[in-house]
Write a protein that binds this DNA or RNA. Structure first.
Length: 819
RNA sequence: GCGGAUGUGGCGGAAUUGGCAGACGCGCUAGAUUCAGGUUCUAGUUCUCGCAAGGGAGUGGAGGUUCAAGUCCUCUCAUCCGCACCA
């Protein structure tokens, strides 16, 4: 039979049409198979998928297919989130309604996904822009409100002038810029906001990280630990001289307190108004404003003396009270004791203003550095000196005992402080889940009764772009009756951060059509934890910490049994183009569709996996895809020109060429299976298949029909997770029925994979000099004797003295000579 | 500043347990096929000395451990990422 040219367009179109409405992975109810839940992180539905997304999906899809072929009951859902609503609300206001816009983009992206042949279970699709989904955000909100886990307060919040909305701390990136507009600094504004008490779980979120070790990348865990930022220390009251009022400070180094030469307040500290004169107050105000304007980042340390003193409760010493711009009101108590000898920042501040530097800690085997010599602070633990009865104690023990004293005498206590703040979820934008509360003049804040959910976003909205929620302009939405007293009331117009949606969407996939509950707890109990979650590292502290928080909250209200949502997390590397991060603003986005137009979906998928190990970033260059395209063509042509031979069959395995190729086949199966089971280095899996095909070409004429038939079947199965269209097409050409990835993954036979003879490397003084072949298990003495007979070896050993011979069984012999 | 990662041919990368460095692919060179271009097939391709056989060097750099180091240890340089007044 003549070979057919590889026409990827024809093949992909054919199967694309047949698969149009197919759900490949319909997870089975009551399956006896073990369950496997694999999930990729959602894209931003910005209308196009770029090659980075395809990488994400290609990894998950290959895994899902493989797991199915290995006999698992696979749940592999795909859904859509509202993450990607364009920040430029105003810009699209004149064109189309954002909801319509989002739904259209979702449709476009679904089309691309189908085109690439991803094997999602479309039946559990969730669209977070739809009320039937977001009503459960409201349901969760009410549950949390009942438990005091959702609350409202005025707070300084991050405000992005471009988005015209508030941002969570986690959404502030790049030295204080908006995550959506990386060149736009955020401003600070004081607003009434809704918060979720994620800090209630701070300890657990931190402690449970140890359970994730091994399954999650260490990098992500480190980022989360830093973000939660637990520090153990002591709160100590410095009594303000002349009054009974205490200034409470927080320190992790109470052992250095005898070196505290002043107390410094944050400029926003309430005592500033009381202690500072008019000039000082305006100075403090200027500091606050400067910080608001500049955002976080490096600031020149400045401060002023208030003219007051506070008494150190341990030493009885008077410490001047200063105000310093580098002290944060939002951390600890908003006041610190400055120990310039043992803290870099205090050192910088105190030397600038001539405040004494007094060392009280010496290194364990060193001398106390004298103040005048100190050019930097000594910040390590050591031994306490010059501190009355505490002198001579190691730092850690001093801290323990000094904290105990503070507690016993009532001027302080041990305290744990977290860096993580409660999660501000209020957004002043149209998009998002309406927060289901009503403000009544008489009754205050009244939750919307559960029977009235969902509170639905109105459709007749004008987008003003004025930085207020457009919902405020919709009277039918805003003006409501109070559910308690029936009087006129105002509906809350803030909407929820869309990270609320993404915090639990993967639970909804278990039970996407449920209209009584967010999901059936029994189904969640079956599918959770997620076995494998795959996505970019950019969500390490946003989505992935919120999701963990939500899971713990759902456990506490009895919906789920697991404490963590995800057992294993894989963070794939970014795709960069021509050395630069792919981004829309740079205009260097490689669109998945245009790539599929040129080379086909199979080539695009295979190549992105081949380009490098999936956890590393890869540099995308179109021209390299040629090699993969050629490879797929080679496979297809080999298959079609050998079909008849394969059908005719015949005894295989006798000829030498047959044995050799069967061995290579089993080695390849072993390699790919191991790659799937451990490190996911699909680039080497694919190169393994290429090697097999190269060998197939070399031996083609010598192979028997039976061997060719076996090879074609197994080769097709090996390709199925990576290149579904081609694999399916060959499968059909081979006369088989049904989806190829519903077949069983081929097993390798360790005996067949084994080489006949061991290749033994012969070294002299560690340098490669010769090779030889010997049966496995050949005794050392024999190997040694044969090696020494080798003329190439003799040339190097010759008249020299043999010092030592090392033999590694079936692998290597190294002859060490001298002279 | 703190924390983490990475560094191998012209390029992407391989070497999973300390045991043949450069698999596989791109690119390039030659030959075959073709009217020609493209396609396809075959061979070659780390550097260096050599006509060749063969030798020498070589995994950012310097040292060390070892019969043997890309891999382990110490120091160092470069690049990237995360956090950054968190008391």
């Amino acid at each position: 039979m003549p070979e057919k040219p590889y026409d990827h367009n024809h093949i992909e179109l054919k199967w694309h049409q047949r698969w149009e409405n197919a759900t490949f992975y319909k997870a089975e109810e009551n399956s006896t198979r073990p369950k496997y839940y694999v999930l990729e992180m959602l894209p931003y539905p910005s209308g196009t998928l770029h090659i980075g997304h395809i990488r994400n999906y290609a990894i998950g899809d290959a895994l899902a297919r493989y797991k199915w072929m290995r006999g698992f009951n696979v749940l592999h859902p795909m859904g859509w989130d509202a993450f990607g609503l364009p920040a430029e609300n105003a810009a699209i206001a004149n064109q189309r309604h954002p909801r319509e816009w989002t739904l259209q983009n979702i449709a476009a992206m679904k089309k691309t996904h189908r085109r690439f042949g991803f094997s999602y279970d479309w039946d559990c699709e969730v669209s977070t822009c739809e009320p039937e989904y977001y009503r459960w955000n409201q349901w969760f909100f009410l549950k949390m409100l009942e438990r005091g886990m959702a609350y409202r307060k005025e707070a300084l919040v991050n405000w992005c002038p471009k988005c015209g909305t508030v941002l969570a701390n986690e959404q502030v990136v790049n030295d204080g810029c908006c995550w959506r507009h990386e060149d736009t600094p955020v401003e600070q504004r004081a607003l009434e906001q809704w918060f979720l008490r994620i800090t209630d779980y701070a300890d657990e979120l931190l402690g449970d990280i140890k359970n994730l070790e091994g399954g999650w990348p260490e990098r992500v865990l480190t980022m989360q630990r830093n973000w939660i930022g637990r520090s153990e220390g002591t709160e100590v009251d410095f009594r303000l001289e002349g009054t009974a009022a205490p200034i409470r400070v927080f320190t992790t180094r109470v052992d250095t307190i005898y070196g505290a030469t002043c107390v410094i307040l944050a400029p926003e500290h309430p005592l500033v108004a009381q202690l500072a004169d008019a000039e000082g107050r305006s100075c403090a105000k200027a500091m606050v404003d400067a910080r608001a304007a500049q955002g976080p980042g490096d600031v020149e340390k400045e401060g002023f003396f208030t003219g007051h003193y506070a008494v150190n409760p341990y030493s009885g010493e008077r410490a001047p009270v200063w105000v310093g711009n580098f002290v944060l009101m939002t951390y600890g108590t908003g006041a610190i004791m400055a120990v310039p000898a043992h803290d870099d920042r205090d050192f910088e501040f105190c030397t600038k203003y001539g405040i004494p530097v007094r060392p009280v800690i010496r290194p364990v085997d060193g001398e106390l550095t004298r103040a005048e010599e100190a050019k930097t602070a000594f910040t390590d633990d050591g031994v306490v000196e010059n501190s009355n009865e505490w002198s001579g104690l190691p730092s850690a023990e001093a801290r323990r005992r000094m904290t105990a004293k503070a507690e016993a005498e009532g001027f302080g206590k041990g305290a744990v402080t977290f860096r993580i703040k409660d999660w501000g979820i209020s957004r002043q934008r149209y998009w998002g889940t309406p927060i289901p509360v009503i403000h009544c003049a008489g009754c205050g804040v009244v939750p919307v009764p559960e029977r009235d959910l969902p509170v639905v976003l109105p459709l007749n909205v004008q987008f003003t772009g004025k930085g207020r929620s457009p919902l405020e302009e919709v009277p039918e939405f805003v003006n409501v009756k109070c559910p308690q007293c029936g009087g006129a009331a105002r509906r809350e117009t803030d909407t929820m951060d869309t990270f609320v949606d993404s915090s639990w969407y993967f639970y909804r996939y278990c039970d996407a059509r449920n209209d009584r509950m967010p999901f059936d707890p029994a189904r969640a109990a079956y599918w959770f934890e997620i076995d494998q979650y795959i996505g970019g590292v950019e969500h390490a502290i946003l989505h992935l910490i919120y999701s963990r928080f939500f899971t713990k909250m759902m456990r506490d209200i009895g919906l789920v049994k697991n404490s963590e949502p995800v057992r294993r997390l894989f963070t794939q590397g970014m795709v960069i183009a021509e050395g630069a991060k792919m981004s829309k603003s740079k205009g260097n986005v490689v669109g998945a569709d245009s790539l599929a137009d040129r080379y086909g979906a199979d080539t695009a998928r295979l190549f992105i996996l081949f380009a490098g190990p999936p956890e590393k970033e890869v540099d995308w260059r179109d021209e390299r895809a040629e090699g993969i395209y050629r490879f797929l063509g080679r496979v297809y042509r080999f298959a079609t020109r050998n079909l008849e031979r394969a059908r005719a069959g015949g005894e295989g395995g006798a000829a030498n060429a047959d044995r050799k190729i069967v061995r290579k086949l089993h080695q390849t199966i072993r390699k790919i299976t191991e790659d799937f089971e451990s490190r996911w280095h699909f680039n080497t899996s694919i190169s393994g298949i290429m090697e097999l095909v190269n060998e197939l070409y070399a031996e083609e004429q010598r192979l028997s029909g039976g061997t060719v038939a076996e090879l074609l079947v197994k080769l097709t199965l090996l390709l199925a997770p990576f290149a579904p269209y081609l694999a399916q097409e060959i499968w059909e050409e081979l006369g088989r029925q049904g989806p190829v990835f519903r077949e069983t993954w081929p097993c390798y036979d360790a005996e067949l994979a084994k080489d006949d003879l061991a290749e033994i490397v012969v070294q002299v003084n560690g340098k490669l000099r010769s090779h030889m072949y010997a049966p496995f298990g050949t005794p050392e003495e024999e190997i040694k004797a044969r090696a020494l007979e080798d003329p190439k070896v003799r040339a190097f050993v010759a008249d020299k003295q043999i010092v030592k011979v090392i033999v590694v069984r079936d692998k290597l012999i190294n002859i060490v000579v001298k002279g």
